[in-house]
C-alpha cells in the first residue's frame, strides 16, 4: 500500500500539536490547583526520609506535638493523598486517609495507617508495586506531623 504523503504527515502533526496545546492551556488552572503549595514543596525538599524520622523521634521526646487532628497532603506526578492524623499526649493515636486521588488503587495503601500507628512514625515499608502511593502517603503523614509540631 502507498505510504502517506510527507506533506500530509506534517500537516496532521501540526494540527494535532495545536489541539494538544489548546488542551494544555485550557487545563493550566486545573493543573496549578493540583500542584503542591509552597510550604509543602519546601518541606519535601528539606527532609530526607532518614532525617525526617530522627527529627520526629527527637521532637517526641521533647513533647513538641500539640494534641489535635491535623490534615496533611502528599502528592507526586501520579496523584495525591490526604490524611488526617490525630495526636494525643505526643502519640499518634489515629491515621485516616481522608482523600485518595492517586491513579492507582486505594487498596494498595489500605494497611499503611496501621503501620504508622505501630511505628509511631511516617516511615512505612514500601508496598510492592505501589511506590508512588507509598511515597505520597508518607509525605502526607509527615506534613500533618509538621503542622502538629508548629501548632
Amino acid at each position: 500500500m502507498k505510504k502517506m504523503d510527507k506533506k500530509w504527515v506534517l500537516l496532521c502533526s501540526t494540527a494535532i500539536a495545536a489541539v494538544y496545546a489548546a488542551g494544555y492551556y485550557t487545563t493550566e488552572t486545573q493543573a496549578a490547583d493540583g500542584q503542591p503549595k509552597p510550604y509543602m514543596a519546601n518541606f519535601v525538599q528539606s527532609n530526607s526520609p532518614t532525617s525526617t524520622h530522627t527529627d520526629v523521634t527527637s521532637r517526641q521526646t521533647q513533647s513538641r506535638y500539640k494534641d489535635g487532628t491535623y490534615t496533611g497532603m502528599g502528592m507526586n506526578r501520579r496523584g495525591s493523598i490526604e490524611v488526617q492524623v490525630t495526636i494525643k499526649n505526643d502519640q499518634i493515636t489515629d491515621v485516616e486517609i481522608s482523600d485518595f486521588a492517586m491513579h492507582y488503587s486505594e487498596r494498595d495503601v489500605v494497611g499503611l495507617p496501621e503501620e504508622v500507628l505501630q511505628n509511631q512514625s511516617p516511615q512505612v515499608q514500601n508496598v510492592s508495586g505501589a511506590t508512588y502511593s507509598t511515597e505520597a502517603f508518607q509525605d502526607a503523614v509527615q506534613e500533618a506531623l509538621n503542622q502538629a509540631q508548629n501548632a
Binding site: V19, G23, T27, Q30, G79
Partner: peptide, 16 residues
C-alpha cells in the same frame, strides 16, 4: 480538550 473545558475528570493530568 472538551473534558478540560467542561472541567470533567482529570484532563489536566492526562495532558501532562
Amino acid at each position: 480538550l472538551l473534558l478540560g473545558l467542561l472541567e470533567i475528570g482529570g484532563a489536566a493530568d492526562a495532558l501532562r
